[in-house]
């Protein structure tokens, strides 16, 4: 029978992981791990529960960054005033995550470590240029979230490592964003999701564009091509059309019986077009 260890600290968790002779896995909220176990994809001898480690829970303003502990739940993020003030569109996007029950258990770290392309908020964090702190027996290392996603359900975390923190740089002025997803019903996985974050200069020229995509390919991903088209422009209609065309080419979709590839592509382009316009309009009316 497998062992279940509720870790009291990161050090305790790392020690437990390294001492295990069989297969050890980390669990936080359990909202993905339980599915993997049930599907027979994971068959651990030891589960190390990191959800009660206080040092990796909570949200803090550390000057340049907002730091979120990896075991912080989506429910905690959704109602946090600091996140809402700095990144209101991230708060809005957390409402898209399943329903209250899953948000009460699911953690920001658990939503990242598997690299699941279907989740709503990893692309939002991509548009925010988030960074990760990972701890191992030797110490800790930092990695850009973007470099963390490797392939389908494959991330840059190694065995014996724990994702401990998500660091989100505060946005410069004239920044705004929005996440929009198309789902069959509220709380379902998105057929397509697009997050747009724009930063303008005082003349209304776009200096930073970020487009993050849910279910656009094998991992949570950015459309760098579309970002390049938008940057350095005033984001006129024609520029938006060019960006949306390139975004369509960046997609790596798998069709299914209800939603063929061609349909998904149309949805992606439509959502992207509208969201870019919305964010631009919001920034213009603020200025």
């Amino acid at each position: 029978m497998g062992e279940y260890h509720v870790a009291s600290s990161v050090e305790d968790a790392l020690e437990k992981l390294s001492n295990c002779e069989g297969r050890a896995e980390i669990v936080a909220g359990g909202q993905t791990m339980m599915l993997l176990i049930r599907q027979g994809l994971v068959d651990p001898d030891l589960l190390v529960d990191i959800s009660k480690i206080t040092e990796i829970r909570g949200i803090e303003d550390v000057g340049e960054y907002i730091e979120i502990g990896a075991a912080t739940t989506y429910a905690e993020i959704k109602k946090n005033p600091l996140i809402e003030k700095e990144f209101g569109f991230y708060t809005m996007a957390t409402s898209e995550i399943s329903g209250p029950q899953v948000r009460n258990q699911g953690t920001i770290g658990g939503g990242l470590v598997y690299g699941d392309p279907a989740l709503d908020t990893p692309p939002v964090l991509l548009t925010l240029d988030a960074e990760l702190e990972i701890q191992n027996a030797q110490g800790s290392r930092r990695i850009l979230l973007e470099d963390f996603f490797v392939d389908y359900y494959e991330t840059a975390i190694e065995e014996g490592e724990i994702l401990t923190k998500i660091l989100i740089p505060k946005l410069p002025k004239y920044s705004g964003g929005k996440y929009r997803a198309m789902t069959p019903r509220q709380g379902d996985y998105a057929i397509a999701g697009v997050c747009v974050r724009l930063t303008l200069d005082e003349n209304g020229i776009c200096i930073v564009a970020r487009l993050g995509l849910t279910n656009g390919g094998d991992t949570p991903m950015r459309s760098r091509g579309a970002e390049k088209v938008l940057e350095g422009t005033k984001i006129e209609e024609e520029t938006i059309e060019n960006a949306v065309e390139i975004l369509g080419k960046n997609l790596d979709l798998i069709g299914d019986i209800q939603t063929p590839k061609s349909y998904k592509e149309i949805v992606f382009k439509r959502i992207a077009r509208q969201t870019i316009k919305d964010v631009k309009l919001e920034l213009m009316s603020d200025a």
Partner: peptide
């Protein structure tokens, strides 16, 4: 059996959870 339908909802303290996604060791 996959955290979608909500029929297995119970409370942990005051918070609702889907009990099919909670390992009992937790």
């Amino acid at each position: 059996d996959s955290g979608v339908c909500g029929v297995c909802t119970v409370l942990l303290g005051d918070k609702s959870v889907k009990s099919c996604l909670i390992p009992v060791g937790k």
